[in-house]
Structures are given as C-alpha cells and as structure tokens.
Amino acid sequence: MTVRDAMNVLGARVLVGEENLDREVRSACGSDMMSDVLAFSKDHSILLTGLCNPQVIRTAEMLDIVCIIFVRGKKPDNTILEMAKERDLVVLETGHRMFSSCGMLYAAGLHGGAI
C-alpha cells in the first residue's frame, strides 16, 4: 500500500511530507522502544510510535523508514518536525491508540514482515 492508503485507513493528519504520500510501504513496526525498532524493522516500513523525541527521527533515518505515525494524539514539536523534513520523511498523526492503529493497518493488508 502507499502512505496515503495508510493515512486514509487511520484517518490520520499529515504533519510533514505531503509530497511523498504516494510512496510505497511494505511493512510496519509499532513500538515505543527504539532499540526494538532497530532490531526488527524492515526497509520501506512505517513506524508507529507514541514516543515523541528526536531519536524517533534518527531511528527512522538509520532504517530508511518511509513514514512515522505518531499514535494516541502525540504532537511532535517543531524541532522534531524540522528534522523529519530535512530527512524527507512523512510524518502523520492519529488519535487512535497503538493497538488499534496497528490492527487497522494489519486488517487493511499491511503486515509486520517475517520474523
């Protein structure tokens, strides 16, 4: 699916990267622990997290993640959004909680990738 598809499934709002919504995503990873994300995430992924600090952007950068979705209404500050812009990432925000967000994307056909 594309980032736009994921956005529509969650009724999410774009904070950064409107121009990149048609990028393809193949899997997703949901966690507030960046070390776990670094251990298990695949490329062309979406990262769902409720953690709101600059290391989320850096983790996404190291993994070539396409899109970060901040769940349960977390609002990243301008420093975080600027970092995301510089790295060409899409940042979305949804009011859904982590479990629901992951479930909705999974049901729509986006899976976690092989373990």
């Binding site: 507030d32 622990m33 070390s35 670094l38 997290t49 600090n53 290391q55 983790t59």
Partner: peptide
C-alpha cells in the same frame, strides 16, 4: 533512559 526509547537491552545484540 527507557522513557526516552532506549535501554531495552538490544544495543549490543543489534
């Protein structure tokens, strides 16, 4: 550190 998203004990294994 854990509240910042690290300290899961995955650093060295990763």
């Amino acid at each position: 550190v854990r509240s910042l998203g690290f300290g899961a004990g995955m650093g060295l294994p990763n």
